[in-house]
């Protein structure tokens, strides 16, 4: 069963008297273990599609099924619960909580889920080690470099073992070397743990490592290439 099934998805933004069609009749399936990149020029709809799959936004029409469950009509609260339990997010601007340490940021999702302390600690420490942040657990975000902050964000996204990790321009704020290292880490997690990643990006380095590249143009899928 696909992790995400998107059927005739349309998203229209109303801006005053103007209607902007960000996505139009998109059909798409994401299978478990994919390392997929959504690419396209600015305004092509890739972030909109990512937000819709991530239940951060609601479609104007069409359906989104996550693990077979239609999530298009869920309430705000139910969508939040779904994100907490089944989805992981990595944002362009890291978006770590500045008042929490690296450890606490990574732990946050597990705390909200009510995972017992012992298990929580083991999982967070393992994940921080996997993303190369061993020994930096107590640092606050302002004491970490951009690359390190994004690694904390990756640890936070995957520590809850989500069905799907959605990453919106995760390397956009990083230098090329750091970006390369980050993508390698995520690719490794994909290969070793079978984690499913969907990226929205312009970064050729990410595209080069992708196993599937979906090109969007004016809100429609122009090309869907599997490698």
């Amino acid at each position: 069963m696909p992790i995400a099934e998107i059927r005739s998805l349309t998203k229209v933004y109303e801006q005053g008297r103007l209607s902007v069609r960000a996505l139009q009749n998109v059909d798409l399936e994401i299978e478990p273990g994919e390392f997929t990149v959504l690419m396209g020029p600015s305004g092509s709809g890739k972030t909109t599609l990512l937000n819709l799959i991530g239940t951060l936004d609601r479609p104007t029409s069409g359906k989104i099924l996550l693990e077979g469950r239609d999530v298009s009509g869920l309430s705000k609260s139910d969508r939040a619960k779904l994100r907490l339990t089944r989805l992981g997010f990595v944002f362009q601007a890291y978006n770590l909580l500045p008042v929490l340490s690296a450890y606490e940021n990574a732990e946050f999702v597990l705390l909200l889920r009510g995972v017992p302390a012992v298990e929580r600690r083991a999982r967070v420490m393992k994940m921080l080690k996997e993303v190369g942040l061993e020994g930096m657990e107590d640092r606050r975000p302002n004491e970490l470099s951009g690359g390190q902050q994004q690694r904390v964000a990756v640890a936070r996204a995957i520590v809850g073992e989500p069905a799907l990790v959605l990453a919106d321009e995760p390397t956009a704020n990083l230098d090329s070397k750091t970006a390369k290292e980050l993508i390698s880490t995520m690719r490794k997690l994909n290969e070793e743990h079978g984690l499913t990643f969907v990226f929205a990006t312009h970064d050729p380095e990410v595209m080069a490592r992708a196993r599937r590249v979906i090109r969007l143009h004016d809100g429609e899928i122009a090309e869907d290439e599997r490698r």
Binding site: K81, R83, N95, L97, F108, V109
Partner: peptide, 8 residues
């Protein structure tokens, strides 16, 4: 961000 991460 808190809400995106699943804080209801």
């Amino acid at each position: 961000v808190l809400q995106a991460l699943g804080l209801r």
